[in-house]
């Protein structure tokens, strides 16, 4: 890799408490441990592994949502965002309000969210439904709105959790097109995917969380 290192994971480990309480000993599920890798500017890194291997958990750690139990994550001064679709949607509120709110939760300022609103509406192709409460939407329409809000986000590092499949067929193609574009602009991307073809098409490097220490397979 030719880019500079922008995130460094050193011996990362996360475990979840499975059960336990006042009178029962706690038992833990180790999602992953001893994970060490560097993320370079401009690369696309794919995380693979079986269910429960800790792929999504690792994304949350990278996003700064979770603090790891072991090891540390060093951020060399970059912004990192998890691509969250439909974050904070309230079914009682119209699409416009939800778009602004969701955008603000993702890190837009209110002015930025307002400025993007007509583009969000246009991209989602929801038309007059933007002013209807989200509870009247079909799940596909909700997904469209969620994706359209997240689409304009462009942090230094974008984390994507199998989010490329939303809505009906035509919108999915449109969404994939936009996502691929995003991934291939200068942005650094970490993505979780079960689809091997997707990984092949998009990723520079793959980390397999089933291997001890997250062996690089590419």
């Amino acid at each position: 890799m030719n880019g500079r290192v922008i995130l460094s994971a050193r011996n990362l480990g996360v475990r979840y408490k499975r059960r336990g309480g006042l009178f029962r000993p706690a038992r833990y599920h180790q999602a992953f441990s001893g994970l060490t890798f560097d993320l370079y500017q401009g690369e696309t890194l794919a995380l693979i592994g079986r269910n429960g291997a800790g792929k999504s958990t690792l994304l949350k750690v990278l996003a700064g949502i979770l603090r790891p139990d072991q090891g540390c994550l060093i951020n060399h001064g970059v912004t990192v965002s998890l691509l969250s679709l439909q974050a904070g949607f309230d079914p009682e509120l119209p699409g416009t309000d939800n778009a602004v709110l969701s955008a603000m939760l993702l890190g837009y300022s209110r002015a930025q969210a307002r400025a993007c609103l007509h583009r969000i509406a246009a991209f989602s192709e929801l038309g007059s439904f933007m002013d209807e409460p989200v509870k009247t939407y079909s799940s596909g329409m909700r997904a469209r709105l969620g994706f359209s809000v997240a689409m304009f986000l462009s942090p230094d590092v974008l984390l994507i959790d199998e989010a490329l499949t939303v809505g009906d067929r035509s919108f999915r193609e449109k969404a994939e097109r936009e996502m691929s574009k995003k991934i291939h602009s200068l942005q650094t991307v970490v993505l979780v995917s079960h689809s091997e073809s997707q990984v092949d098409k998009l990723a520079d490097r793959v980390i397999d969380l089933d291997q001890p220490g997250g062996a690089h397979v590419l």
Binding site: T79, E92, L93, L101, L106, G107, Q112, C116, F152, D156
Partner: peptide, 30 residues
């Protein structure tokens, strides 16, 4: 891409207050 929004590393307090205010207002509306 001219419309891309670069989020901050950490929300500053002003955006945080704005977010709390907006969310509370919209909760009341809902």
């Amino acid at each position: 891409d001219t419309v891309a929004v670069a989020p901050p590393r950490r929300r500053d307090w002003r955006n945080f207050v704005d977010l709390v205010w907006t969310k509370a207002r919209l909760n009341l509306k809902a």
